[in-house]
Computed example of a mutant assay.
Amino acid sequence: MKSTPTGRQARLGGELRKMRERAGLSSTEAAQLLGIKQHQVSNMEAGRLGVSADRVRMLACHYECPDRVLVEALTRMTRDRRRGWWEDYRELLPSPLLDMAELEHHAQSLRDATTARIPGLLQTREYALEIFRQGVTELSPPDIEHRLSFRIKRQAILFRDGDPTPYEAIIHEAALRMKVGGSTVARQQLQHLLDMSDRQHITLRAISFDVGAYPGSGQSIHYARGPVAQLDTVYLDQSHGLAFLDAEAQLHKYRTLFDRIDTVALDPAKTRDLIHNVMREL
């Protein structure tokens, strides 16, 4: 039993809890049905107790879950128990950052919408360094180095041989024009965006100042698509830390929000033109 489950383990357990609740069973009733102790059900649903693929299928059978596609997706979540690179940072960084890296690693695709900063997956080392230096909480040089190396390693999903993660970033013009680290760093960051947008699996779009207010403005929104829609996740980068959302109503809200943001964002070609214009003005 693990006292501190990873985000992926907690999500698997949470989905088993949802399945039980849809069946109208309490944890005590489920334990009686399964012939196990109530605390075992609670530990499974909290992600503290490992669950095999066979156990997931058995639970789905007892709970009379009709969604076979979801059940198979959950069984696949039980199989990959390899220790991810992010575990090397377990004692160095807050756990939500590790959960984010784990989520991105397993995502089918990713979407970001940001207003004031370039998304972390597209930041250069110099840009990210300046962001960490200017944080509200002053970080020590070793802490900054840990966060910087962690951010760069997260970006590896965009460079995987054969199966890089499809990624779409929608960036407000304010973030493109902000001279983080000065003109030289800002120009290098913009050139990096252009270079990354040349990759077939990366879509870069901008929202110009001309749009004015739009749905979701002022937020940094990140959307990770799972193997089925029920396993999608939204994570919000807020002043007090990361918040992970996966309730059905929340996912529907942010899917709708991204659809509305899509309607005001420039297409990739016009986005590149805007970036070139900003670079000329630096």
Results as ranks from 00 to 15, higher is better:
G35V: 04
A60W: 00
I152Y: 06
R55S: 02
R272I: 08
W85H: 09
L25S: 08
T115M: 07
F209A: 14
E130T: 15
L139S: 07
E21K: 11
I261Q: 04
L59P: 00
I261V: 13
E15S: 10
V228H: 09
N277D: 09
A175S: 06
K270M: 13
D161K: 15
S217A: 12
Q9H: 10
I36H: 02
S149F: 01
Q9C: 05
A116Q: 12
S183W: 12
A206Y: 02
H201K: 11
A265M: 02
G162E: 02
V264N: 03
I221R: 07
C61M: 13
Q9F: 05
K18C: 11
D67R: 02
A224E: 03
R117Q: 14
Q238W: 01
A174N: 10
D80A: 14
K18L: 13
G218E: 04
D262E: 10
T114W: 11
Y254D: 03
A116C: 11
V185N: 05
Y63D: 01
M279V: 05
A107L: 04
D67S: 08
Q9I: 07
L176C: 10
D195L: 06
P227Q: 13
T124Q: 05
A156L: 06
R8N: 11
S26I: 02
R205C: 06
E45F: 00
T165H: 03
L129N: 14
G84R: 10
G162Y: 01
L242Q: 01
V51K: 08
L148C: 08
Q219I: 02
Y127W: 00
L97D: 01
A60Y: 01
L98T: 09
R260A: 07
G162L: 09
G14V: 07
E29M: 11
L103F: 01
R117C: 14
V264M: 05
